[in-house]
Design a protein around this nucleic acid. Structure first.
Lengths: 189, 189
DNA sequence: GTCTATAGGATGATAGAC
DNA sequence: GTCTATCATCCTATAGAC
């Protein structure tokens, strides 16, 4: 049972509020009020609003990057890799649902170096996933539709999983993984 | 060739800016500057920022509602209805790409009656789609996975289609429809 | 670590001249 | 239909007391 630092507490509360209204619609006063302190007190723990946003977004972005890089080097089939990508998204969604709202909707409010780092990570991630799909098509594991359509279709489902997770409440992770993998890979017909 | 009213012009310019930075990050001064006038002049054509947002969002929301209601009464198979839902989303995405960004990301900034109307339309839409999927499962057209997983998987892909459309530029609508229908219905394996 | 006070600027919106 | 001028409020962030 670890104790949260004051900074971590701020980030947690902020992520919750950003999830509800978006980064720009949440003021430092809102965050402070939710912690029962005054806005000025926040600055004793963080440098500013921007730092809060970048901590929220870049922390999860790195989890995706690490998870993906661990996977690409494994010697398993392309379909198996796709399954692992799906599971990676489900695991991160269950643990960081609110941070994913900021990552999806507020990344454009990151500034300079933070923005650059995020965009780079997202591009690398998509490129890795694209390679997996192309590899699968080349060796006949995956149907030869336009790879971009497959990439987009799966990724957009996984990226908005946090919305569904919030709406329906916590659901059994293992059942979700099984059905989601089936629907996305084998289709519904 | 119809001429845009000044109000329509404001809505078009605003939708473009909301698409880039989000409703809360765009000021009336930003919108005015993009039209080469002063912010105060906007109020001769619209009642305020809220009216701009509701015009953008509710107009497309109604297109979805009308399209869906036309469909549910048709006597065609459930799979055929799913195909038509996919085509409906693709058509609206191609024509109102920027408005869809606001609909997806800024609907929570709608106020009172506008917010109520939107939430109601979205709930009805999802419920109609859910019924189509359940009908398909019941009569054996659709595999019997959890209907909610199927609903979410297809809908989240369709709802974020505007992002992909913007990234890749205008693509041939008919090719997109064909491949998208295949991937979402028949799967990739 | 939290407070009060406040700087310095942006924001949505209105009044009234042209 | 657009302008200038302005109001009242909100915003992020800092200074300095306790």
């Amino acid at each position: 049972m670890k104790t949260l630092s004051r900074k971590d507490e701020i980030i947690l509360v902020a992520a919750h509020l950003f999830n509800e209204k978006g980064y720009k619609a949440v003021s430092m006063r809102d965050i402070a009020k939710a912690m029962d302190i005054k806005a000025a007190s926040l600055y004793n723990h963080i440098s500013g609003k921007q730092e809060i946003l970048s901590e929220i977004i870049l922390k999860v972005a790195e989890e995706f990057t690490v998870g993906m890089e661990k996977m690409v080097s494994e010697s398993i089939s392309a379909i198996k890799k796709v399954e692992k990508v799906i599971e990676l998204h489900i695991d991160i969604t269950v643990n960081h649902s609110e941070a994913l709202a900021a990552l999806n909707n507020d990344w454009m409010h990151l500034e300079s170096e933070n923005l650059k780092a995020f965009v780079q990570m997202r591009e690398d991630y998509e490129e890795n996933f694209r390679s997996i799909i192309k590899e699968g098509i080349d060796n006949g594991e995956i149907k030869s539709y336009h790879p971009e359509v497959i990439l987009f279709s799966i990724l957009s489902t996984l990226r908005t999983l946090y919305l569904w997770n919030q709406k329906r409440g916590k659901l059994d992770v293992n059942i979700l993984k099984k059905d989601m993998v089936s629907v996305l890979i084998k289709g519904i017909k």
